[in-house]
Simulated scan of single mutants.
Amino acid sequence: MPDLQEMQAIIHRGVPLAAAWGVELLAAEGGTALLRLPFRKELLRPGNTISGPALMGLADVAMWAALLSLTEGRDESVTSSMNVNFLRPAGAVPVLAEARLIKRGKRMVYGEILLRAEGSEELCAHITTHWAVITPSR
């Protein structure tokens, strides 16, 4: 199993936008992952809060990290649906994403991602997602 630094490199190669945004992998194990999106002025929307597209991108990468934690860093599965409920503005601060797989089948994966502003216990978004399982070529 790759360590966190190796796993973060896999994520940054697989999703170059995550690298451009500076997304950090803080933990990944057993179908769960914790990621951090650092504050970046270019991710703000009017109202001085992190934009919805940035939050959705973070959530998507977090779920992939949770999948990678079960597949030794090799997973080519893709998002097939995402349901996002924005609960409150994140603000102009770093955002944490906690992802967990709820059901992992042969063809589909279902998971949940909780987003919160760093330093806050209140959720800024609740996301559920389905992924289509694609087995990596060997």
Rank of each mutant, 00 (worst) to 15 (best):
L17R: 03
L25Y: 01
L115C: 06
E122Y: 07
A28L: 12
E121N: 09
L68P: 06
L26V: 14
K41Y: 14
L114A: 15
S81C: 01
E112P: 13
R36K: 10
L67Q: 00
R45Q: 15
V133M: 09
L101V: 14
P136L: 04
I11K: 04
S51N: 10
L17F: 11
A20W: 10
A62D: 01
V15K: 06
T79R: 02
Y110R: 03
L67A: 04
D75P: 07
R116N: 06
E118W: 13
N48M: 12
F86T: 02
P89K: 09
E24A: 06
P16N: 11
L68F: 08
L25N: 00
V78N: 09
G30Y: 09
Y110S: 00
H12S: 02
S120E: 10
L96G: 08
L44P: 04
G47F: 13
H126A: 12
A99H: 00
M7P: 03
I134K: 14
V84P: 00
G111T: 00
K103G: 04
A18V: 12
A19N: 06
A9P: 05
N83Q: 08
T128Q: 08
A18D: 06
E112F: 06
L123H: 12
D60Y: 13
L43M: 08
A19F: 02
A66I: 01
S81Q: 02
I134R: 15
E42N: 15
A27I: 15
K106L: 12
I10K: 03
V84H: 05
P38M: 10
L115H: 09
